[in-house]
């Protein structure tokens, strides 16, 4: 009897295992199917762009010369955002996880999560009115004193609705994402390693450098990639903040454009070939993210020895 019951639970456990692993795999396959259909949808919709005569496309010189400047603009905006947000985000996460008193840390973590939720329209409105009007003078100063650096070439825009402003707004939007994820990773760093480091007389920073950061590196890259995804794909905030124009090197003059904002600004009135063209632009954005992610995965795999499960 006792053997019977033992056998029956084993049988149940085995079925449970099968069902569970089957469900997990099915979910994964479902994601592939969805992505595959999205890709088909995009390709079918974008296809007419590539077979169209160059003269029929926006700018009249073919798809490449239309998309190239705004792709560069997208990369510039995302780069500004990440250059600002990554160190600050990691700093804030460290502050919350290892520096702030525990009670304060919980509250802060909560506030940061909340900030990810502010709709992008609000960030856009804030950037266009509050931030831009406060940046007019700093930009004029930059143009005057550092104008010999191409990215600060004058004359500064009178409205300050420039690429740098858009990049800063994106940085503010990306910050909560990076902070929130890296904070969780930092909190999960093995306590034993930390305590061992401290016991050996390491300062707090040495402990973080030796025990926390190596452990968290893949997670940090993941978090930055998620942030990058948002920075690349952000439409409304950029559309509201940036006074767009052709590609220029100066970040404090009005000009440049991002792919996502270009789609958002032109999509409502688009029809026919223009619509195909904008969806092709969406496809390009998709490919950029793909490339960036491949690079990130490659970096993570190089540091595999530090990866999570110990």
């Amino acid at each position: 009897m006792s053997t019977n019951s033992l056998r029956s639970t084993t049988g149940m456990g085995r079925t449970g295992d099968k069902v569970f692993s089957g469900a997990a795999m099915a979910a994964g396959i479902l994601i592939l199917v969805v992505l595959f259909s999205v890709a088909i949808f995009l390709l079918v919709q974008a296809l007419p762009t590539f077979s169209a005569k160059p003269a029929d496309l926006t700018g009249g010189e073919g798809f490449f010369s239309y998309i190239f400047p705004i792709v560069i603009g997208t990369l510039i905006a995302a780069a500004i955002a990440l250059i600002i947000a990554t160190p600050i985000g990691i700093g804030v996460a460290l502050f919350i996880s290892h520096y702030a008193p525990r009670r304060l840390a919980q509250g802060l973590g909560y506030v940061v999560d909340l900030l990810a939720a502010i709709p992008s329209v609000v960030y856009g409105a804030w950037g266009a009115s509050f931030l831009a009007s406060n940046l007019k003078e700093p930009y004029a100063w930059l143009a005057e004193n550092l104008g010999w650096i191409p990215i600060f070439a004058g004359p500064a825009s009178g409205t300050a609705k420039t690429m740098l402003t858009a990049g800063i707004v994106l940085a503010v939007m990306v910050l909560p994402i990076i902070t929130s994820l890296t904070r969780e990773i930092f909190l999960q760093a093995p306590k034993l390693h930390e305590e061992a480091a401290l016991a050996l007389g390491a300062t707090r920073w040495e402990m973080i450098k030796m025990a926390v950061l190596p452990f968290a590196r893949p997670g940090i890259i993941s978090a930055v990639m998620l942030g990058l995804g948002r920075a690349l794909g952000e439409t409304m905030a950029v559309a509201l903040v940036l006074s767009s124009g052709p590609l220029i090197a100066s970040l404090i003059q009005s000009g440049n454009q991002t792919v996502a904002a270009e789609i958002a600004l032109n999509f409502p009135e688009a029809f026919g070939l223009r619509l195909n063209e904008l969806i092709a632009a969406g496809l390009v954005l998709f490919l950029i993210t793909l490339a960036v992610n491949m690079v990130a995965r490659w970096i993570i795999s190089r540091h595999k020895e530090f990866s999570g499960a110990n």
């Binding site: 409205t159 509201l240 006074s243 767009s244 009005s254």
Partner: peptide, 26 residues
């Protein structure tokens, strides 16, 4: 064209409310 000519630079803003606001402030 529904798009402002790309060869002409200048300030821009999104939507009717956007341009009116920008002009009112400048």
């Amino acid at each position: 064209s529904g798009d402002w000519p790309a060869t002409l630079t200048g300030e821009n803003a999104k939507g009717t409310s956007g341009v009116v606001k920008t002009v009112t402030e400048t």
